[in-house]
Design a binder for these strands. Structure first.
Length: 285
DNA sequence: ACCGCAATAT
DNA sequence: CATATTGCGG
């Protein structure tokens, strides 16, 4: 007994700023996504055979799975939960299986004088079960990951599911990627009509991302003659950092939103905006 | 089952 | 404005 009717209410967690990136290398430094991690020489010296060709997806998936398992997700694909403490290191050995069912994670709450004159309920997003996820904010870094992966796979194989897995971003859902992918494709198409280059002022964020030429294709024929050095990307990615907004060319109001969820439509990146145009898509008539 | 895209809602 | 969501066809 004891039924409780709880209405899901979004609360404004704004002070959850953890130092995500502080200990991490800059995205510029890491993310040589498009290159092999281990040079052939090294591999040779260490007797590392190329047998580790486990399709990118596989490797990453394993990584993802591991993490999920550790979190006690219990097989749940994507469980939304808080990240582990920055002091803790994660291992890649799924040797651990928790037999106990319930797992309680510590919840730390800062009690501040908050008089709620309106409806305000507690919101435990720390739980593995997040019913409603906050809006995903596509930060340039996140977007970069996206672009990198897409370039790596090639537009041809760049499907939401694969991208999501390869990105290895916790909390990222297929829908998230799908939606973004759609926009990304539109962007490519749009720009293609213009000069080869010179991103107009219309592009703010996408312009900063070099459009990969890998949009052509790569695997199609069985044997390729020379290309092939796909590097697995077993690098897990932390959840989106709540800060970092001073983008290059986004003269928007500069106020950090301290969270994942965002109610304001002015963050993340921007694309060139279609002017309700009558551009000829591709079908000439 | 999934992807792709348009329309629509938030 | 950016995303999410949905609907429909392939």
């Amino acid at each position: 007994m004891g039924e409780e009717a709880k209405i899901t209410d979004y609360s404004r967690d704004s002070e959850r700023v953890t130092e995500w990136e502080i200990g991490l290398p800059t995205d510029n430094d890491i993310t040589p996504l498009s290159q092999p991690l281990i040079p052939p020489e090294l591999a040779s010296a260490f007797s590392i055979s190329p047998e580790s060709y486990r399709t990118l997806v596989e490797v990453n998936r394993a990584s993802n799975d591991t993490i999920s398992a550790i979190r006690g997700g219990g097989g749940g694909s994507q469980a939304f939960s808080t990240v582990v403490e920055p002091d803790e290191e994660e291992e890649e050995e799924p040797d651990r299986e928790n037999g106990s069912g319930t797992e309680s994670r510590k919840l730390r709450r800062l009690d501040s004088a908050e008089d709620a004159d309106s409806v305000m309920l507690n919101n435990d997003d720390s739980s593995a079960r997040a019913l409603k996820r906050p809006r995903l904010v596509w930060t340039p870094q996140l977007h970069k990951r996206f672009v990198d992966v897409v370039a790596h796979l090639g537009i041809q194989n760049a499907v939401p599911k694969t991208i999501m897995q390869l990105m290895n971003v916790e909390g990222l859902t297929r829908e998230n990627v799908a939606s973004h992918l759609q926009k990304y494709r539109l962007y490519l198409k749009r720009m293609q009509g213009f000069s080869d280059n010179a991103p107009s002022s219309t592009d703010q964020l996408f312009a900063s991302t070099p459009v990969p030429q890998s949009l052509q294709d790569s695997s199609a024929g069985g044997c390729d003659g020379g290309s092939a050095g796909h590097a697995p990307i077993p690098m897990p990615y932390p959840p989106p950092p709540p800060h970092m907004m001073g983008m290059f060319g986004i003269p928007h109001h500069g106020f950090s939103n301290g969270g994942f969820q965002q109610r304001d439509w002015s963050s993340g990146f921007s694309y060139p905006q279609p002017h309700t145009n009558g551009l000829t898509p591709s079908g000439d008539k």
